[in-house]
Amino acid sequence: MIKNKTGRIFEIIFYPLVSILIFLIIWDVGVKNSELSVVMPGPWEVVSKFIQSFAVPIGKYTMVYHILYSLMRVVPAYIVGSLAGIILGILMGWYPVINRILRPLYELIRPIPPIAWIPISIVWFGIGEGSKWFLIFLAAFVPITLNAYAGATTVDETLIKCSKMLGASDGQVFKTVVLPYSVPHIFTGLQVGLSTSWATVVAAEMIRSTEGVGWIIISSMDTNNVVQSLVGIMGIGVVGFILAIVMRKIEEVLCRWNRIET
């Protein structure tokens, strides 16, 4: 489908704005016309507090610092978790022996939610950044491994035969067929892993912190501040949304061949 540029911009900006606006209006009407207002502030109050939070500190820091602190916890752990997941997933997918040896271990770890590791992670890594990185590492590692594995096991057999006939060595088959074939699957994993990692930061910041978007929510519990809690939620939502878009853009560039419409 070919669309003109204004049409595309309209589609990208206008529709999301309308849907968000409608959501806020329903929220507003709902709160104003029911007893919900006792436990639920209106959307304009939350939105304006959210915007204010970029200038007025919550706790020690403004929103930008809270976001940066949380990102500092998520990004390194996410990158390490992703790399580990990609390597393990592809190796398991490509070498049946590795799969047989490591799969049972992986399957045991897979169903455990990252927050279940909180006590252990404190014992192992203390209450500083280490335990938070560990939790986020797990949150990224698990889904990415699974998707990388799926990518490497579903490689088109004929493409492998084709490469062998054309003279490729086993190593070249791996590099020129298995890896590129797995890339779209890996990106699915990276997307899922990114959202679970970002979501896990809230739990990780429960361990002990004085900053971060997760901390905004945790500390609102102590003060019974519903508005602050919703501001924190909004912060997590907005940043998660932006991260997902960034990831999708990277994918679009790297998997151009997979996205082109016929």
Partner: peptide
């Protein structure tokens, strides 16, 4: 005895590398 570049195959399923 094994696949090799002195033989070329055009497959029924076409099988191009979609990323190239």
């Amino acid at each position: 005895v094994e696949p090799g570049p002195d033989r070329g195959v055009v497959f029924q399923s076409i099988s191009l590398y979609p990323w190239l």
